[in-house]
Write a protein that binds this DNA or RNA. Structure first.
Lengths: 189, 189
DNA sequence: ACCTGAACACCGTTCAAGT
DNA sequence: ACCTGAACACCGTTCAAGT
């Protein structure tokens, strides 16, 4: 049977959510689509590029309308939306973080954070640094969180579950550090 | 020829630094040691456990005497030492971050940060949250940094190199956020 | 204690050829 | 435009057997 690019991505998300990122192989995905592995290379030039498309679709499905409030509320909204989107599918955080690290996809949150921080009064350089600091926190935290959640639900572990507020506290720590660097908050002269 | 556990780790570090983490396979490592792949399973029960030992050795080689100053200088020292240790070997950041995520090794910096933050006056819960926030930043930032450095030195890219101060600024952002949460800085009642 | 030899069940990718 | 069939060069891990 014949498939379109979007069919491949949809099936990849189903395989991801059912079997995990480690089992999302080109061969497994091809089998699920009832085609030869080589057929996938008609749609994507490599597995990396396929995974980038999958990550973008995960984020697109989790997207929400931008709030139009204060810069810090917008930052919080972007980070929370990103977290929720990644937690929606098994290994979603690891997938999006990996794709983002290679700059192949998942860059929408990055752009939104830079915009919010510049609207908040940060110059371009500091907005970039602050955005990367925020994203390193979010990707690291949520990957960690998801690993623990999945280990617990697999019964592999019953270690202390991370406090529910841990994400909010970590995010607030970074946000406070950013606030102190807004020129508008540090009176000139 | 017969090998000890430490011979395997030493050779693994050499393979890592020469060919990168993706090419550090059990088969490649075995060939380098002139043994069969199955021989490695006499020393390590899985590749994951071997990589944990390699990560611990990378950190041990980069370790420095702890400074005995203010809590925030100690935090800065632990983070900087960790960064330098990971940057010493090709793909060192990705290796240590991965092993740490699975809690199989590389936990020494984690313990040192918790200790420094508790000495700084944070309660155990907040010290844990702050430590995870710091480590997510350090692992994320240095992995990123090393990927860009390695891509540049491979001539693959000549993208804007990250500003040299980027690590220091990001670290200061997180540190400032932590400072605001020290009970001693927020006068009770 | 440390290693061999052989096997099992997989990978990503390429490429000429088919419809 | 989308796919097949076959091949290339690999993986991690297990296990009985050897010294």
């Amino acid at each position: 049977m014949r498939h379109r690019r979007s069919d491949v991505v949809d099936t990849a998300i189903r395989v991801l959510d059912t079997y995990g990122l480690a089992d999302l192989s080109m061969r497994r995905l091809a089998a699920e689509l009832a085609v030869q592995p080589s057929a996938l290379y008609h749609h994507f030039r490599s597995k990396q590029v396929l995974l980038a498309a999958v990550a973008d679709e995960v984020l697109a499905r989790g997207s929400r309308p931008h709030p139009t409030g204060a810069w810090d509320e917008r930052v919080r909204a972007v980070c929370t939306t990103l977290r929720d989107a990644m937690l929606t599918y098994r290994d979603g955080a690891e997938l999006v973080a990996t794709v983002h690290a290679f700059r192949l996809g998942g860059m929408a949150p990055h752009r939104e954070l830079v915009a919010a921080l510049e609207d908040g009064g940060l110059d371009a350089g500091l907005a970039g640094t602050a955005t990367r600091t925020l994203l390193h926190f979010v990707f690291g935290h949520v990957s960690d969180e998801q690993t623990q959640l999945q280990a617990a639900s697999a019964g592999a572990i019953e270690a202390e579950p991370r406090a529910e507020s841990d994400f909010a506290v970590g995010l607030d720590i970074v946000l406070d550090g950013i606030r102190l660097r807004r020129p508008v908050d540090r009176p000139a002269g």
